[in-house]
Simulated scan of single mutants.
Amino acid sequence: MSKRNRKRNILLSILAGIVGICLVSILLNKTYRTTFESLPETDRLMLTELSKLYNNFEQSSDQLWNEDYRFDTKPLLLVRTTKDSGLIRSEGFAVNVPMQEGIFAEEIKMPESMGLPKVYRISRFSPTTLSAWFPANFGTLNLKGIETMYFKYYPKMFSDPTLYFNFSTFLLHEGFHIFKQKDWTYDTNGAEHIDNYPVNEENYALMGIEFKLLDQAMAENNPQRIQQYLRDWTVVRNYRYYKWPQLIGETKAEAIEGSARYLEYRYSKLTGGNLMVLATKQEPYHVTFMQAYDFIANGQAESPSFLERSVRYETGAALELTMDKANLPWKEAIEDVPGKKPGITPYEILSNYFKMNDLTTIESQLGEIKEVYDYDALRKQGAKIVKQVNIE
């Protein structure tokens, strides 16, 4: 046999092997483990969590975002992998997609008590879901003519999840970005990005006052007192933006990421979970903003870069949670509807509510706030943060 024929035969053998693997996989998807009870443990855990999530949205969507946002009706493809951003994937489970049994799809018989819509297992080799092989945790693809979110889950999400990366929490957060915030424009053209970030002790000290005020607002239940803390917070935030206008990007991140994180916290509270602002795995299951601030200043925890964007997930959620407690309407205002209504950020909602538009008045009120919240001590902590930034 010539060398050329040998290469061709090897190639044909490889192709035949690939075709064989695909055919066996497609056949098994149609005939093997087609009931909930017979599925692998990780798949059963995922569908059980999904059932719980859907039931809570069906019964209490107004306690999560509002009555109009029904995550339990959104089209999903849940894909099992072995790890975070896993490249090697198994079959996927399509929910809220008008599938029919076919070559690549098989309906899984589910217990009625779980209250799920029809669940179809989709072959890993279905041409319409090939993009879900990419090493990404989530994205969108077209399934039966519908833009569908695909989301990857893996065993660690159920056995020992990293904070914010258990199945329900992570799915809710990214699903909110994809479904609810699809037309929000806060992060368009890098609006969250901050050029020339003011690395100086004054900025960090004022940020410390903001954190103290948020801590007090989070711990308080009296709506009038919460409103006062939020009013003082708005004074400080306004001054920071008058002095460093580029920081406005903070509030864009608070709107986008803070709102998605807010939904996580609302769901955790509704279901009796421990997830709360600045969550930890140990009791009391969170730290305060000032504890986080002092950890950073003293070189005991996160890099100072945490204060530039990552903390806005938490400050955004905290502002929204405290506006709830203070009975301040904000959800309609924050929703961005291009061509109809521009949304405004939590900061802008509060600034409008408290009618903050006069710099002289703001500076006068800021002086009083500085005295109450020991600004001099915060400047010393701010100087430590500056030192650490320069070291990095």
Results as ranks from 00 to 15, higher is better:
337 V>S: 05
339 G>N: 03
338 P>Q: 08
340 K>A: 13
331 K>W: 06
381 Q>W: 02
355 K>A: 14
375 Y>F: 14
332 E>K: 00
387 K>P: 06
311 V>S: 03
322 T>Q: 00
353 Y>N: 08
370 K>E: 14
329 P>A: 02
387 K>G: 15
352 N>G: 12
326 A>S: 04
348 E>S: 14
345 T>K: 04
367 G>T: 11
333 A>Q: 10
377 A>R: 11
328 L>G: 06
347 Y>Q: 07
378 L>D: 07
353 Y>R: 07
381 Q>K: 11
320 E>S: 10
359 L>W: 13
316 G>S: 03
356 M>W: 14
370 K>C: 08
368 E>V: 12
340 K>M: 09
313 Y>A: 08
365 Q>V: 07
345 T>W: 02
328 L>M: 12
370 K>T: 10
357 N>F: 14
317 A>C: 02
309 R>I: 13
386 V>N: 11
359 L>C: 14
327 N>Y: 01
349 I>C: 05
384 K>P: 02
357 N>T: 15
351 S>P: 10
327 N>A: 08
373 Y>V: 06
367 G>F: 05
327 N>G: 01
346 P>K: 01
329 P>Y: 03
381 Q>R: 10
309 R>M: 09
360 T>Y: 14
313 Y>R: 01
333 A>W: 07
333 A>D: 12
330 W>I: 00
365 Q>D: 14
320 E>P: 02
316 G>N: 08
350 L>M: 07
367 G>W: 00
372 V>W: 07
327 N>I: 00
326 A>W: 00
320 E>N: 06
344 I>C: 04
309 R>Q: 14
316 G>L: 00
372 V>Q: 13
310 S>E: 13
387 K>S: 15
367 G>V: 07
329 P>C: 00
350 L>G: 08
312 R>M: 12
317 A>Y: 02
333 A>R: 00
387 K>C: 12
357 N>Y: 15
376 D>H: 08
375 Y>M: 08
366 L>N: 09
317 A>G: 03
339 G>F: 05
328 L>H: 04
370 K>I: 08
380 K>T: 15
354 F>G: 09
343 G>F: 05
319 L>P: 06
379 R>P: 13
350 L>N: 06
369 I>S: 11
331 K>E: 12
363 E>N: 12
333 A>S: 11
349 I>A: 05
321 L>M: 07
372 V>M: 10
372 V>N: 12
329 P>D: 03
378 L>E: 06
311 V>D: 11
350 L>V: 03
357 N>M: 11
368 E>Q: 10
349 I>H: 05
385 I>F: 02
326 A>F: 02
308 E>F: 09
351 S>V: 10
331 K>N: 00
361 T>S: 15
